[in-house]
C-alpha cells in the first residue's frame, strides 16, 4: 500500500512543481527554492513527518523533503542544546544528500564530457 501512496503523493508534489513552472512561469531554480521553503514550513508546523509516515518515499524523494530535513535537524539539536543547536543541527540529517551529490558530481566531472 505504501507503494501506491508513494506514487500518488510523489506524483502530486511534481504536479505542483509543474504548475509553478508552466502556470506562474517560474524558472526551475525559483520553483525548487520555493518547494524547499514549503517543505521547511510544513515541517515547522509538524505536518511533514505525518506525510512521510503515510507516503514513505513519496514524501522523502521530492525536494520538499530537503526543507523538511533541514528543519528537522535544526529543531532536534535545538531541543538538545538550545539556540546554538539551530545552527549546528541544520545539516545533520541532509548531510547524506548534499555530500553524495557533491562527491558523485565531482567524480562525474572527472569521467564524463558533456554529450550534447
Amino acid at each position: 500500500m505504501i507503494f501506491l501512496w508513494a506514487f500518488i503523493v510523489g506524483g502530486l508534489i511534481c504536479v505542483v512543481g509543474q504548475l509553478m513552472m508552466d502556470g506562474l512561469k517560474l524558472t526551475p531554480a525559483h520553483t525548487m527554492a520555493t518547494l524547499v521553503v514549503v517543505g521547511a514550513v510544513l515541517d515547522g508546523l509538524g505536518l511533514y513527518e505525518r506525510l512521510i509516515d503515510f507516503a514513505g518515499a513519496g514524501a522523502t524523494v521530492p525536494i520538499t523533503s530537503f526543507g523538511n530535513q533541514l528543519v528537522h535537524g535544526a529543531l532536534a539539536e535545538a531541543d538538545r542544546t538550545g539556540l546554538i543547536g539551530v545552527i549546528t543541527g541544520i545539516f545533520q540529517i541532509t548531510s547524506a544528500g548534499i555530500s553524495a551529490a557533491i562527491i558523485f558530481s565531482f567524480l562525474a566531472a572527472l569521467v564524463f564530457k558533456p554529450k550534447g
Partner: peptide, 15 residues
C-alpha cells in the same frame, strides 16, 4: 517537473 522535483533533479543540476 517529474524529473526536476525529485532529489534526482537536484543531483542532475549539480552534475
Amino acid at each position: 517537473a517529474g524529473t526536476a522535483v525529485p532529489v534526482t533533479g537536484f543531483a542532475n543540476s549539480m552534475a
